[in-house]
């Protein structure tokens, strides 16, 4: 089947999409945006978090066909050219990145959190990030990055 959508501001018409294909697969294999990651492909790890019409979703749980006529923003669409988004910069500065496989999903999730709440509290941060698994960092420096980015945004 054919899927038309906008990804990171670019209109795409993709032919030959399989009925069972996920939005994640479409983004990674057809659009050529592998930033959204494939760690569990069942909505548990959050590594594939993207915006689907302004809502943060696990791209692995969205059928590609459901994204018809929608606007998708992936981690690759957050920076302004060479200029990192403040959330991305905060991850770099806080040392919140180790292996980095969870990082794209967490960057989108934190971007979403701070778009909704400029000054999240401790429990709120933890709850907002509870759908994103990280195996390397124990999350502490990711929390540092959230606080750093929130402070910068204020």
């Amino acid at each position: 089947m054919r899927v038309d959508l906008e990804v990171n501001g670019v209109r795409r018409s993709l032919d030959g999409v399989r009925e069972g294909e996920s939005l994640l697969h479409l983004l990674r294999e057809r659009v050529g945006l592998p930033g959204s990651k494939n760690a569990c492909e069942q909505g548990e790890c959050g590594s594939c978090t993207v915006y689907l019409d302004e809502t943060a979703v696990c791209a692995c749980l969205v059928a590609a066909g459901q994204a018809q006529d929608s606007r998708v923003v992936t981690v690759e669409g957050l920076a302004d050219g060479a200029e990192l988004h403040p959330v991305q910069r905060a991850f770099v500065e806080a040392g919140a990145v180790q292996c980095g496989f969870c990082t794209p999903g967490l960057v989108v999730t934190v971007h979403d959190l701070l778009a909704r709440t400029s000054d999240p509290g401790e429990a709120e941060i933890r709850e907002a990030l509870a759908g994103n698994l990280c195996r390397c960092t124990g999350y502490e420096k990711i929390f540092d990055a959230v606080r750093l980015a929130a402070g910068e945004a204020r």
């Binding site: 592998p34 920076a79 990192l84 990145v97």
Partner: peptide, 14 residues
Amino acid sequence: RPDAVAKVRGEFAF
């Protein structure tokens, strides 16, 4: 990390 920028941009090749 020298690879952190590529990782936060989603451009690091796993």
